[in-house]
Write a protein that binds this DNA or RNA. Structure first.
Lengths: 177, 177
DNA sequence: GAAGATTGAGGCTTCAATCTTA
DNA sequence: TAAGATTGAAGCCTCAATCTTC
């Protein structure tokens, strides 16, 4: 009846699994708290705005945006409604396909993203990247990519990952003051 | 006004961050889906039951249970209400401290956990552990523990992590068939 | 007054159903 | 009929307020 019982985790596996699942459970909360407090954005909203910024003409079809932010279409649609109500994005029917909708970053949306980037970047550094050595950074990337190959076989998530791209060019507004 | 802008991520950092955040976003959904489908439990409920199983007398104060499952007290209280309604746990006032509440695993709760473990273990193996080499496993543990040291300074989460402990001794019901 | 815990309201995500266009 | 997207209901989490006991 029960499928042949998989063998239990050995000590090494147990350590790795425990710490990985802890990070996975804790990290989203850390990011959400900081962004919400300092910029009034959830981490998902932040990634969404970042994905639009990275897109040609700062515009993306809803389906493409959902793939890049790893969201279901209903989830994206709801969040997009809120962001549109706040004036941070705009939605227009796609000229080429009557079924599709294009979402684009507004000026206010771009400004909100610019304002959020430095604080988020500081958090990512202090809470994650700066806690491990350069070697560990490489090792972490390797392991995470391997796991992703399994749980995200189509590699949708990594595609021009918005938060990363946004983080990679936050200098623009830094010299304004 | 803006704090001095942190420097952007270099390529190595960007890779690590992108993949890590992707895993953190995707993994909980993978675990929840499998457990919900095969055992009617969320991953959080699974961890909660596992924490009780590992506790002396399969009983824990709500505060202690919250710490071990990394939950806020309100969250735990809501989930506990549902689990109690389903007969999987029981709550009784603590004899030693009138303010406290003890939660304990019921027989049905233990059975539900037993039934859930093999499938969960198989998922953990196939989706995560088996996708990386033994070396990467060690490296992943090291990096994740370092990050945890920062985002979970009190180490609450790791304390007798339920899912791990449960996974470490699932043989009991395996030989019954 | 502080600690342990519960409750209720509000917000977000999920799921199924729906609508429109290709 | 399928693809793209939206909507509404239901469930879960968060936050603030509350209640009881120390």
């Amino acid at each position: 009846m029960t499928e042949s019982a998989p063998r239990p985790l050995d000590e090494s596996e147990s350590r790795a699994w425990t710490s990985l699942i802890a990070v996975a459970e804790l990290l989203p909360g850390v990011l959400d708290s900081q962004l919400q407090r300092d910029a009034g954005l959830s981490h998902f909203e932040y990634m969404l705005l970042g994905a639009l910024r990275d897109a040609p003409n700062e515009t993306l079809r809803m389906t493409a945006l959902a793939a890049r932010t790893n969201a279901t279409l209903p989830r994206l649609s709801h969040v997009a409604s809120r962001l549109e109500r706040r004036g941070l994005i705009a939605r227009r029917p796609c000229p080429e396909d009557g079924r599709a909708t294009n979402a684009s970053l507004t000026e206010a949306g771009g400004a909100a993203l610019d304002a959020a980037v430095p604080g988020h970047l500081a958090t990512v550094r202090s809470q994650v990247l700066d806690t491990i050595s350069p070697e560990q950074l490489e090792q972490l990337a390797g392991a995470a990519e391997a796991i992703l190959g399994r749980i995200d076989p189509f590699g949708r998530f990594g595609t021009a990952c918005p938060s990363t791209s946004a983080l990679a060019q936050p200098d623009e507004q830094a010299e304004a003051s």
